[in-house]
Each structure stands twice: as C-alpha cells, then as structure tokens.
Design a protein around this nucleic acid. Structure first.
Lengths: 182, 182
DNA sequence: GCTGACATGTAAGCAGTTACATGATTAT
DNA sequence: ATAATCATGTAACTGCTTACATGTCAGC
C-alpha cells in the first residue's frame, strides 16, 4: 500500500526511472524499506494510467533507453494524502532473533557462529549508512539526518549487545570445559 | 515460509493451541515476528495432515473447547531442518523512517509530533520487554536473554537518538521564531 | 570470453492479511 | 448493556516476490 506513496515521494524531488528508484531502495532505504522491480514497474504503470506521473523516453547512446517519470500536480496531491495518513506501526522480521529464541535446541558453537555473523552483517550496515552520510551530508535535510541517525544508533547498540553476549557465552563455554576436566 | 518452523519450535517446548500461539506472538515475539489467526490455524491444519503434530481436544467448562497440539518425532526432525538452514536477512518496514526521509514536505510541527509519537511507542515497547523479562527471568535461556537484550538495547538507542533530534529541532524552531521577530 | 552495470518488463505463484462467521462467559 | 476474553475457523483478496525474457556495452 505504501509503494505508491514512496515512489511519488521520490519523484517529488527528482524525476527518475524505475531503475533509479531501485537503486535508491538499495542504497538509501536499505535499513527501513525495500521493493523489487516486480513491484516498481507495475506501480509506475498504474501511476501513469492514473495521471499521477508522466513518462518521458530518454534515448541514450551505448545504453538502453530510459523511461524517466515526472510527477504531475495530481501526483503531488496524492503524495500529500499519503503524508497526512496515520503512521503505520513498524514491522520487523528477524530470523536471527528467532534463532536466539530457540537457541536451546542448538549447540553453543552454533549460537556463537550465528552471533558473529549477525555482528558482521550489522557492522557492514553501519559502514554503508556512514558512507551514505559522507556522500550526501551537504544536502541532507534535518529529518533525513534523523532517519540515518536512528538507523546507525540502533545498529551500534545491537552490535554492542551482541559483543557482550559473545563474551558471556565464551565464559560459560570455558567454565563447562573446566568442569569436564575434573 | 518460516511459519511452520516457528510453530514447531514453540510446540517443541510445550503443547499449545492456536490461541496460545497467537498470544506468544503478541507478547513475546512482538519485536521480531508476527502472525495472524489466518496464518496460524491453516498452518496447524497442514502440519497435522503431514503428521508433524497431533491434535488433542480439551473440553473446558465455561470456555470453548481447545485444540491442544503436540509435536511428533517427525515434527522435531522438521524443526531441526529449519534450524540448520541459512539465517535469513532481517526485514524492516518503518513508515516512521519513511516520514523522516520525506520530512521536507511537512511542517516542523508535524515532524515533532511524529517523533514524539515514535518515542512513546518505543518506550511502551521497552516497558513490555522489561516486564516480560521480569516475568520469565528465572527460566529464560541464555540465548532468549540475548534475544530480549538486543531488542531492549536497540529501542533504548532509538529513543535516545530521537530525544536528541527533538531538542535539535526545538532549537531550530526557536531560532526561526527569533528571526521572524526582527 | 565472461561478468557486471545498465535498463525494462511480465506472469505465475505464494504467503500471508483482512474480514467475516460464531458463540459462551465474565467483568464493567 | 456492552466490551473484553476465550476460542476456532474460512474465503476472498492482495501485494508483493521470484523467475523468466531480452539486449547492449564496458572492463577485465
């Protein structure tokens, strides 16, 4: 349901192609939204049919043609409608936290491996967000800065907690090894 | 795809009804998973047909009958299969962060309102997680503790960042009011 | 010669959600 | 009275994802 709102939001600032939109989803929205081509292209088509956006075909040399979409006045109104709606609750699906919840059915070594992997993932995410910040900090709005900061601080907190947990597990593992020697 | 794994995981520990499972989703998995009755009951039916679980009808006085499901040996094997699969990447949909990203199209007052609401939501979430912890701390496994800790630390970090952002916005708002007076 | 970036699109399938249907009991 | 809790279930719908289909050019 948000797909239309998000795409209109992006086109409010700058005319883009479906391919460009996908790039933004991957590079900028990575920590709070996603959408595939199978969602983007049909949404663009619907929006065009509804008169919310207009297509411009850009002929490129050495590259395929590009369909650049421009938002219309109707589109801007639709986007304003989206922005005045009640904010939806956030939805998180975390397979990692599920593994932690059911951790008693796995070995300590398995738990350690999952945690290390999760730390690596989150550290990569932090790097990505911080490089995004470096690249765009000069034309970032106040609220876009908040959007980034919330992501970064949340990831840092998770990494910190996971590293502490790892230490905790290591103590338990070495204690149980000690006992097995007696 | 995870629905089967999650339900088998819960039934590994304790036989339950669909209603009980929904309660666990709401009260315990609130910060990393969810599922409606429309997902739970059909999954239970499929699992029973596949011989992974068995139904026991419990007749209750003053309450409707209850279908209590028990996991079978086949079910335990299926669950082990799920636990050895690659951990899926987490998925987050945050309408709040979307509003922050598109914040330039709204007023400062609107931004402040969204942030205050988000802080309240997250503070409620923290309360809920901490009361869960109080209720079950004596029979929480190490990894379940980690599951809770990651949620709590992430929420705390977000609240902290949002409160700082709110202060930042207030300074900007009062500065612009000053200017408009000159 | 092959991989990756550039670029658009469709169709089948799925894993759910939402809404509906039912109904007793208890607490306000 | 009436809302909430307990309890189970179905059917229609939806909003995607996945996989497929197509093709050029640049760089290694």
């Amino acid at each position: 349901m948000k797909s239309k709102g998000v795409i209109l939001g992006l086109l409010s600032k700058k005319s883009m192609s479906g391919y460009d939109i996908k790039l933004v989803f991957q590079e900028v929205f990575a920590h709070f939204f996603d959408g595939s081509y199978g969602m983007i292209y049909p949404t663009l088509k619907t929006l065009e049919k509804e008169g919310k956006i207009e297509k411009e075909v850009i002929v490129q040399e050495g590259k395929p043609n590009k369909n650049k979409y421009h938002i219309t006045e109707e589109g801007r109104e639709e986007f304003q409608m989206y922005m005045t709606q009640k904010v939806d609750d956030e939805i998180l699906y975390s397979d990692f936290l599920l593994r932690m919840y059911f951790g008693e059915y796995s070995s300590m070594e398995q738990l350690q491996q999952w945690i290390v992997e999760e730390i690596n993932k989150k550290e990569d995410d932090i790097k990505k967000l911080e490089s995004n910040y470096e690249n765009w900090k000069d034309n970032l709005t106040i609220s876009q800065k908040i959007c980034l900061d919330v992501g970064v601080s949340s990831y840092y907190a998770q990494v910190r907690t996971l590293k502490e947990s790892l230490e905790h597990i290591e103590i338990i593992v070495s204690e149980s090894k000690m006992k097995s020697l007696i």
